[in-house]
Design a protein around this nucleic acid. Sequence first.
DNA 1: CCGCATCCTGTCGGATACTG
DNA 2: CAGTATCCGACAGGATGCGG
Lengths: 129, 129
Amino acid sequence: MDAPNVSTCVITPEREALVRDILGRIADKWTLLVIDALEGEDAVRFSALRQRVGGVSQKMLTKTLRQLERDGLVARHVHPVVPPRVEYRLTALGESLGAAVCSIWVWAGDNIASVEEARRTYDGGMPGK
Amino acid sequence: MDAPNVSTCVITPEREALVRDILGRIADKWTLLVIDALEGEDAVRFSALRQRVGGVSQKMLTKTLRQLERDGLVARHVHPVVPPRVEYRLTALGESLGAAVCSIWVWAGDNIASVEEARRTYDGGMPGK
DNA sequence: CCGCATCCTGTCGGATACTG
DNA sequence: CAGTATCCGACAGGATGCGG
């Protein structure tokens, strides 16, 4: 049973729940940054990844990577050497998500001015608070 | 030449911060659902919107709508009558975001099976927990 | 070097009661 | 009906220390 051609944005309750779940995950503050940091790279070590993302604690990076690994978006490869050497890379699935998310990036970049102006207008009209 | 100039998805530090901000907002559990509930409609009343989204508390719906209004994504129209009648509708900016977000929806719908299978595999390999 | 466990704090978000 | 205010539990997420 192949997925039918989804040219339009048709939302079913089932999908809504799943999308809600996935969306909640990709937006947990670090996931998208990690995906972005892995995009276009072959394999990135944990430390390098942490520097690349910037500002992420080791705890959250680990957690984020585990989730991504669980969802099949990132592959984790442990080199059995000492000191430990662990590398991460995007799977095909992960890259496809990165591509999909790219449209949001583009939208944001394209509409920064509009959003900021709307905020200024809104905040300006509410001086008291 | 440090970064290989990828054709479409070029990310600058400035944009990254902005996108981080916007992304954090569109993913705050309700925003996308609200946008989706408003998409294709002309004007929706508060109560109708609440039913349409489903499961959202009145507090969070109000908060979400205020943020969307502030960012210029949603227009709020108050009818000066009693009982109060407040209607919301997407602005052009809001609709454009909805269109951009659609690609994520499509991706999710298109990859539900892959993600779920990856999760089952991952969880299956970790029986203890 | 990588990752886990623990502690601690701020924020998110639901339930409820009240106002216009 | 629409919105605000308050209380409260749950959890995200940072800092630190240990272990392999």
